[in-house]
Design a protein around this nucleic acid. Sequence first.
DNA 1: AATTTATCGATATAAAAGTATCGAATAAGA
DNA 2: TCTTATTCGATACTTTTATATCGATAAATT
Lengths: 217, 217
Amino acid sequence: MVSIPVLTLKRLPQYLELLQQFQREGQSHVSATRLAEITGVHVTQVRKDLALTGVVGVPKVGHKTAELIEAIKSFLNWNDSSSCFLVGAGHLGSALLGYQELSRKGLSIVAAFDTDPALSGTTVNGVKIYGLDRFANLCRRLHINIGILTVPSEHAQATAQMMIDNGIVAIWNFTPVHLDVPEGVIVENVDMSASLAVLSHRLAEKLHHETKVERSH
Amino acid sequence: MVSIPVLTLKRLPQYLELLQQFQREGQSHVSATRLAEITGVHVTQVRKDLALTGVVGVPKVGHKTAELIEAIKSFLNWNDSSSCFLVGAGHLGSALLGYQELSRKGLSIVAAFDTDPALSGTTVNGVKIYGLDRFANLCRRLHINIGILTVPSEHAQATAQMMIDNGIVAIWNFTPVHLDVPEGVIVENVDMSASLAVLSHRLAEKLHHETKVERSH
DNA sequence: AATTTATCGATATAAAAGTATCGAATAAGA
DNA sequence: TCTTATTCGATACTTTTATATCGATAAATT
Ligand SMILES: NC(=O)c1ccc[n+]([C@@H]2O[C@H](COP(=O)([O-])OP(=O)(O)OC[C@H]3O[C@@H](n4cnc5c(N)ncnc54)[C@H](O)[C@@H]3O)[C@@H](O)[C@H]2O)c1
Ligand SMILES: NC(=O)c1ccc[n+]([C@@H]2O[C@H](COP(=O)([O-])OP(=O)(O)OC[C@H]3O[C@@H](n4cnc5c(N)ncnc54)[C@H](O)[C@@H]3O)[C@@H](O)[C@H]2O)c1
């Protein structure tokens, strides 16, 4: 089996976003050239990425927008939605509970869990919040295999372990903690710090450079 | 000037997180070997990454934890905090306003902006929310050059443009929209969709594989 | 004091990702 | 109908990133 480059996987949602916009605008066809121009990704790269989803384009016209959207969605398994649990309904957790788009990306949060007794029993955006004591039972009964981790950093590892112990095999980790998990368990980190690091360094570089240029005049 | 690999920049916060944990545990020294073991990054890679920050280690003992922390922070410019504005104080926006750690990563949100009149004048976690009409004036007066973008997708491009028009040169973009900006403006996307895409595909792959194995018995 | 061991840091090799080139296909215009 | 322009998709090439190797160095051990 050909393994898909991670970077391709990461670019696909970007194409998808654009394609959906094009579709709303009523454009029936889109060329790789066009996608490349807008995203800044090299044309050849776009072609390679799209090729992996199995679509074929026609010369001079490109790809059928609808077909391409379907291809990407089905490739990412974003067509039918997977149920998942969220643990840690704090600032970030409740933002995610209120994030409508998730369902369009194949993810449906069916329940949330929090240690805070004040939150227990409440509902955020239609999702009920339970105490942690309910986790094991519900998780096994509903055969949940995706967990969203938004607890404070110091509880990240223990919470991840609890998830795994109850059958969760994929963790979407929003904490900056590196999770130590058994082989076979998928951990995907949403690394805001990483992104901020790039921003900070780039900006510092830019400002520093500008100061130098100014001085030299 | 040697340009720093993006991937190095993205790994640095991960090391930093670990180092700070080690420091709390009272470990005065850390070796690249150790960091490699925990993060899963190859030792040689860790060494190269650290080397870029200018630190030097000593054989057999590694690096001084405190020194390494300082080196990374100063390299990322996370020592002194930059002021920034946040636009779009909705679900995600207010989560970020409540995110204490930001200040430890060199970022200080000094004001937020939202079109919703109900939010105008309120305070979230000590940060005041203003109407958009106040943006231009405040932005210029305070010489803000970083903007956090958390408005609904359909307003992303226009809001980004407004930021740029008022002197913002770096945008931390949480929307899935590809922003079209003038040269010189830094855009850093926090791409949750990208991350989710990797998770979804990996999981689908894993589950599919397991089903196949089961069947073959 | 000599030896072992763990680690560093430099250099070399390998793998992955990105970019360029080119022929083939197809629609639109001459 | 023939030509031209545009796009596709395959292959070759380049650059970047990751991994392996190796000598040097400093602490710990004999
Ligand atoms: N807030 C943000 O915008 C943001 C951004 C990036 C990363 N993060 C990360 O996300 C994580 C959560 O951040 P936050 O700002 O939402 O924190 P928070 O304190 O607002 O929310 C954490 C929630 O988890 C609950 N909780 C605590 N221990 C728990 C446990 N063991 N099991 C279940 N629930 C538990 C708390 O009651 C609270 O409701 C942190 O690791 C943070 O670094 C947050
Ligand atoms: N909620 C999440 O967890 C989450 C996760 C990932 C990405 N995002 C992205 O972040 C963006 C915001 O998501 P959200 O869930 O916070 O949405 P939201 O609707 O909860 O919040 C948006 C806020 O922006 C304000 N707003 C609207 N137009 C504005 C304008 N022109 N200028 C200033 N403010 C304006 C609204 O009043 C609202 O308060 C979206 O693009 C979404 O895709 C959200």
